[in-house]
Simulated scan of single mutants.
Amino acid sequence: MPDQQAIKLSYTTHRQQAVVRLDFAYDAELIEIVKQIEHARWSQALGAWYIPKEQFDLRLFFEAFRGKAWVDYRELKNANKGQPITTPVASKAHYNPKTFKSKLSAEVKSQIQSFKAWMEQKRYAPNTINTYIHQLEIFFGYYSDKDPASLINDDITRFNTEFILKYGLSATFQNQTVSALKLFYEKNLSRQLNIGEIERPLKAKPLPKVFSKSDLEKFFRCITNPKHKMAMEIIYSCGLRRSELINLKLEHLDSKRKTLSVINSKGRKDRVIPLSERTLQKIKSYYREHFPKIYLIEGQYPGKPITASSLQKVFEKALQKARINKPYTVHCLRHSIATHLLENGTDLRIIQELLGHKSSTTTEIYTHVSNQSLQNIKNPFDDLDL
């Protein structure tokens, strides 16, 4: 094996999309190369870089890292069982983000950096900051011959048509661009764009994927490491997001009140979750055996939280061991407890509070995937004398 940094490729799912995951030890040079690969994005949830499977081309990936890293693609090869891994790219137009970013004037770069500093001070989520800055750099690079102050709604519409649609970019990309521009103009140029006049793409509303209870039982039985099992059980039992589990400290647990506090979560909100007696006893047993110092689930080093990438690997390994061939993600555990609570008769408002949803509309999506609700429907076909 060459004496080089290794990049391991594997298939997984991210936001209900099949992707190729890139795993490698931190290396600034390799990260810069990844940033130049079209469609490559960083995921806080995965704790890794990824490329949508349909846009991934192994040949081009090898070229990008030739002489820089050893590419381990054995998992892709095994998963495809001899089928080509590369994706034909000749029929689709491509763009290089670096080309557009290089066209930015010093003045525009300064405005964007000022905007970034403001977002950081306002404590926007890191993913939001990175996404908005990326969108602004592409947009203003596209209009590098114009002053941002002179751009109007028609320019955004033209960008949608001549850039986003031309390169087959997603509806999410389009919405993120509009949102980034709206905030940028309000903050930096003290004027508002007439966003209502700009056509936004229809938003997809995919239903959440939910574990059946039999799949859940198989999944949990296949996790033998007590720490890993505790992590997955807490995510399901308490309906936590992955980041909430990672940041869960011992001080957030109250055994007397039988509660768990989620601090500074999505939307900078706190919430309190009741612990079932069984969950509480499992937590106490786990603590007595492993004595975590600060975080309930700690990683390789005492006092440091487990990483998102470690959780993802534990999850994928358990799915594989349980022979569950469904596109589940870690977040599906959260979807599953919400749906199962609903099927057990829990009020939707209570589920909303447990999950920390800002709007009840978000929680109502679980009514569409509840098996109990669907099975209670009486089909008129059954009344026909046939």
Rank of each mutant, 00 (worst) to 15 (best):
R257T: 07
P380L: 06
A117D: 12
P88I: 01
L311H: 01
S110C: 07
T86P: 11
N247M: 06
I263P: 08
L136R: 05
A125Y: 11
L76D: 02
Y301N: 10
G356E: 00
L60C: 14
P274G: 00
L248H: 06
P88F: 06
Q135W: 02
L240P: 01
A231F: 09
I365M: 00
M232R: 04
I7D: 04
D383V: 15
S255D: 11
A64S: 01
Q17Y: 04
F139V: 08
E120K: 03
I129Y: 03
F381T: 12
I351C: 07
E54I: 10
F381R: 12
T99K: 07
E277W: 05
L30T: 06
L260S: 08
L60W: 13
K213I: 12
I350W: 02
K182P: 08
I7T: 00
K378S: 13
F220R: 01
A117Y: 08
R221H: 13
T172W: 09
L76V: 06
P208R: 11
D383K: 15
I246G: 08
S359L: 06
L169K: 10
F62Y: 15
T279E: 06
T367K: 12
H290A: 10
N127M: 01
N194G: 12
H228I: 03
Q300E: 11
R21F: 07
Q111H: 13
S373T: 12
Q312Y: 08
L275D: 09
D154W: 05
Y50I: 04
A318W: 00
R278W: 06
Y167H: 04
S190P: 06
T13N: 11
F220E: 02
I273S: 06
K122G: 02
P2N: 05
D385H: 15
S336C: 07
K122C: 01
E316D: 07
R271I: 10
G303K: 07
T307M: 07
K304D: 03
I294F: 04
A79N: 13
V34K: 09
T12D: 01
E244Y: 09
H94Q: 13
F211E: 09
K213V: 14
K92Q: 14
Y286C: 09
L22Q: 01
D147Y: 12
S285Q: 13
P226Q: 03
T161V: 13
I133L: 05
R74T: 13
Q121G: 11
L104G: 04
M1V: 12
F115T: 01
T13H: 14
R191W: 09
N175G: 10
Y287D: 09
K35G: 10
S150R: 04
I129N: 04
E316K: 13
F159K: 03
V314P: 03
I324Q: 02
I235A: 09
S265W: 02
W49M: 04
P226M: 10
T367V: 05
L253G: 09
R242C: 14
S243F: 11
F62A: 00
Q16E: 14
R242S: 12
M230I: 02
R334L: 09
I234R: 05
K146I: 05
G303T: 05
R257V: 12
Q174N: 14
L183E: 11
V210H: 00
I377L: 14
G303I: 03
H228W: 10
E162L: 13
L136K: 08
